[in-house]
Amino acid sequence: MLYNFLFPLASDFAALNVFKYLTFRTGGAVMTALLISFIFGPSVIRHLQSKQKGGQPIRDDGPEGHLLSKQGTPTMGGFLILLAVILATLLWADLTNGYIWAALGVTISYGGVGFLDDYLKVSKRHHKGLPGKLKLLLQVSFAVAATLWIMRLMPPALETTLTVPFFKSVMINLGWMFLAFSAFVMVGASNAVNLTDGLDGLAIVPVMIAAGVFALIAYIVGNAVFAQYLQLNHVPGAGELAVFCGSLIGGGLGFLWFNAPPARVFMGDTGSLSLGGALGAVSVITKHELVLAIVGGLFVLETVSVIVQVVSFKLTGKRVFAMAPLHHHFEKKGWAEATIVIRFWIIASILALIGLSTLKLR
């Protein structure tokens, strides 16, 4: 909004020329989202506490310590993240850019699905919310709609193609199968972040790390000179997503202030589904879907642990892990919560560096 209103006046007021620069507006989005979280966080938490007398329902079959340490903590804190991300993006992004609206659309719609899920859990005082099939149907529907919009915005040569990391000239044209693949990326990323969100601060930091990586990727692929130098596919207009990713970082930092152990609020599905969907949408637009699997490898690992656990139990009657997802396995093994969280953050940082290396190693 500021770009659309103020940058046209730069010819008369030279100082307004700074709004032309993505780096300036990305920094502005980070700080704005952070401030919004700090300002509205306490009141949002108080409101959630007043409406959720018992806090988030805790699973009886989960780690025993959660029944004591996390009882009464309100959920739906993802609303605070959404508020910060949406307002910061609208303030600092170029609102004529279609990719911004596609990313926001996925984020808001997935946040809505998560909100319904959280609301049912809280109102029924049970850990089950929306039926799984209905939740998946809504996620796929929103992902398909977003993909169709993204495909219309894409250059024809990139509309249905999949690029492969580490190979500069490998592009696989999926045709209309790209629609299914893109939906799989968004839905998969959304649910992977949701599975990871099980300990205080565990999911939000890896999300911020991934958002930082994709802010850089978006900036590079949106710049014809940088993209050509690094032998990446240039996606005109994708650079604006750096502002969106900046708002994810700022909103995540602000939320972490209240989610740091011991958490005053949980993000719930409202936050985890929307954040995962946002990362998935950005990866599709920047043509780095497979890189998301590397950068977000922690989320992939958590998801795979659940799949392995379920398949193993159904086929053999035995469990591979003490409990799934993986972070609960280590809780059962006696690791302290802070130890698990920090070590998982370290893993996320290492995977982010590996993902960044794909930009040069081609």
Rank of each mutant, 00 (worst) to 15 (best):
Q49L: 11
S50A: 15
K51G: 08
Q52E: 05
K53T: 00
G55F: 08
Q56C: 14
I58R: 02
I58F: 07
P63E: 05
G65Y: 10
G65S: 15
H66N: 00
L67Y: 03
L67F: 05
L68S: 14
S69Q: 14
S69F: 13
S69N: 13
K70G: 03
K70L: 08
Q71K: 15
G72L: 12
G72N: 13
P74C: 11
P74T: 10
P74N: 09
P74E: 10
T75H: 07
M76C: 06
G78Q: 07
F79Q: 02
F79W: 01
F79N: 03
F79L: 15
I81W: 10
L82V: 05
L83H: 01
V85S: 11
V85M: 14
V85D: 08
I86Q: 05
I86T: 15
L91P: 06
W92Y: 06
A93T: 05
A93C: 12
T96N: 13
N97D: 09
G98M: 00
G98C: 01
G98D: 01
Y99V: 00
I100R: 05
W101P: 01
A102K: 06
A102E: 03
G105N: 01
G105C: 01
V106D: 00
T107P: 04
I108L: 13
S109N: 04
S109Y: 10
S109P: 02
S109A: 12
Y110S: 08
Y110V: 08
G111A: 01
G111I: 02
G112L: 12
V113S: 03
G114W: 09
L116M: 09
L116P: 01
L116G: 11
D117C: 03
D118H: 04
L120F: 13
K121R: 14
V122T: 00
V122M: 06
S123V: 15
S123Y: 13
K124R: 15
K124I: 04
K124H: 13
R125V: 08
R125S: 14
H126F: 13
H127I: 12
K128C: 02
K128H: 10
K128N: 11
L130C: 06
G132M: 06
G132A: 09
K135I: 11
K135L: 12
L136Y: 13
L136M: 15
L137G: 13
